[in-house]
């Protein structure tokens, strides 16, 4: 289960709205406990895919991810997952999302942005055998 702290969901959705009509991307930061993960902050990242194709693709290089990992460590937080937006498209992992999936244990949070407004946010996790994504329960404390 992924718990998203108050205000963080809005920040994820606002990032996707600001990126529209392109895809926005960033990392979920927080802590892992015995009963799940709690994200308390986000780290927005630049979409490194070639300009002109960013409405349906995102990419972040290893070097950028190293810098983000070091920044998370500096804040005393873990990288819990990756969020990105799907402009005018369902909040479900695409074939391309699956082909580029990294590791089980990361939460892949996807937000639909319809005509510039965030409508749906869902979280997904890669199966341990890497065969598919399954939806992850999201808790939103008040």
């Amino acid at each position: 289960m992924l718990t998203i702290a108050s205000g963080v969901l809005r920040a994820i959705q606002a990032h996707g709205e600001a990126a529209y009509p392109n895809e926005g991307v960033g990392l979920l930061l927080g802590r892992t406990q015995a009963n799940g993960k709690t994200t308390t902050d986000i780290l927005p990242l630049a979409n490194g895919w070639e300009v002109g194709e960013q409405s349906h693709r995102y990419q972040v290089s290893g070097g950028e991810m190293l810098a983000a990992e070091l920044e998370a460590a500096r804040r005393g937080l873990d990288v819990l997952g990756i969020f990105h937006s799907h402009p005018d498209h369902p909040a479900e992992p695409s074939r391309f999302d699956y082909e580029w999936a990294t590791w089980p244990g990361y939460s892949y949070v996807i937000t639909t942005i319809e005509q510039g407004r965030a409508t749906t946010t869902r979280s997904w996790q890669l199966r341990d055998d890497r065969s598919a994504f399954d939806e992850e329960v999201v808790a939103l404390p008040a």
Binding site: W49, Y58, V60, H84, H89, S94, F96, T102
Partner: peptide
């Protein structure tokens, strides 16, 4: 350090 590159999209 082991670090992923990430990519995806609709």
């Amino acid at each position: 350090m082991i670090v992923p590159s990430i990519a995806g999209g609709r």
